[in-house]
Simulated scan of single mutants.
Amino acid sequence: MAERREKLKRFVQEEAKAIGFDACRIARAKDMPEAAAALGEFVAKGYYGQMKWMAETLERRSSPLNLWPEARSVIMLAMNYGPEEDPRPLLKQPDRANISVYARNRDYHDVIKGKLKQMAGRFAARSGADVKVFVDTAPVMEKPIAAKAGIGWQGKHTNLVSREFGSWLFLGSIFTTEELEPDRAEKDFCGSCRACLDACPTAAFPAPYKLDARRCISYLTIEHHGVIPEEFREAMGNRIYGCDDCLAACPWNKFAQSASEMKLAARDDLKAPELSMFLGFDDAAFRKFFTGSPIKRIGRNRFVRNCLIAAGNSGHGFLAGQCRVLADDESPEVRAMAVWALARLLPQAEFAALARARPRDTDEDVRREWQREEEMLCI
């Protein structure tokens, strides 16, 4: 039995490397009590915001065995997506749109899931065991399982940190009925460092190792529906999809290698795209430009909403013309954020004249934006 386990584990590791994964470790399916407790606290405090599925799938998510009772081992796999350069300097170019590093190329779900299926099929053929693959979209706690398997540890920003790849890792898992020898969990090497916590522009960490997603720019730009709460708009800067600040601040990134060899290098047109281009997108243009991209999943309206906040933060009056057009958009969330942007881009007298000339909007959120800006300008 021990010899079989050793051979199968060696097979798994060799296959993982051959197929393009940067790390492969094993965890027992039953070893997740700490993660379940942390998840329960996250849900109990309402930190999940509008992500209702977090509460709805709490029981299934809290243990691999709740998702698949027959599972005995979890093969955790990681792929490095470390950027070629620090993404933070782009924050100082307000006429440019800042897109999170992970979303600057193909949807990683598609990339990793294809590799997982290929590897799982080979493992099943070799072992005779049943297998199931998961990558992010299923109720699996990838980061705690990866930490238990020894790929890295969950840092104070709650993301996985590796001594080899820093904070830049995509994760996927293969559940199997095969009993495999588990790897040792990784130690926490964060020490007294709080670089990631201090880097957060919206104070989304109520304490080390705890995240209030409702304050996180990644959550706000991707998961949050409707108008962005006013208190976070200026802090968003030109971040139109996700936020890399806490990841990029991690000192362990100095050991991370570029992901160019994994064919996940950023598209040239997403490294520092002009904000004005995105403000002109209708639904068809949006879908065409982001074909195969994870950004496509949030839809044109939410995406343009984010771009309007970036426009309002830019200080560039030449964007006001596009914002005026979007103030008449079919989407209420787009119209509302266009009002906010216009109030910051137009001279006060010009905005006041525009506000007085406009008919009453049919949407409450949009009316509220006009009223708030008018009151602030004493119109």
Rank of each mutant, 00 (worst) to 15 (best):
A147T: 13
Q93H: 09
P83Y: 06
A124L: 05
S63N: 14
N105S: 13
T137A: 13
R106V: 06
V135T: 13
A97N: 05
N66Q: 05
E142N: 00
V101I: 06
V74W: 04
F123I: 12
L65E: 15
A124Y: 02
A125L: 04
M141K: 04
P89A: 01
Q93D: 09
T137Q: 13
S63T: 09
M79S: 15
D95G: 10
W53D: 00
I112V: 11
R61Y: 13
L91Q: 02
T137I: 14
D130R: 14
P87I: 07
A125H: 00
R126D: 04
L67R: 06
L91V: 02
A103C: 14
S127C: 05
P94R: 01
A146P: 13
G128L: 12
V140L: 09
I112S: 02
H109T: 07
A129P: 08
A55M: 04
K92C: 04
T57R: 04
L77V: 14
E59Y: 04
S62Q: 15
V140T: 13
I99H: 01
A147M: 10
E59A: 08
D95Y: 08
D86K: 02
E142A: 00
Y102E: 09
A71V: 14
T137K: 14
D136V: 12
A120P: 01
L77N: 11
I75V: 14
V111T: 13
A146E: 14
G128R: 11
L90H: 01
A120V: 02
P87F: 05
A97I: 02
R60D: 00
R88V: 09
P89N: 02
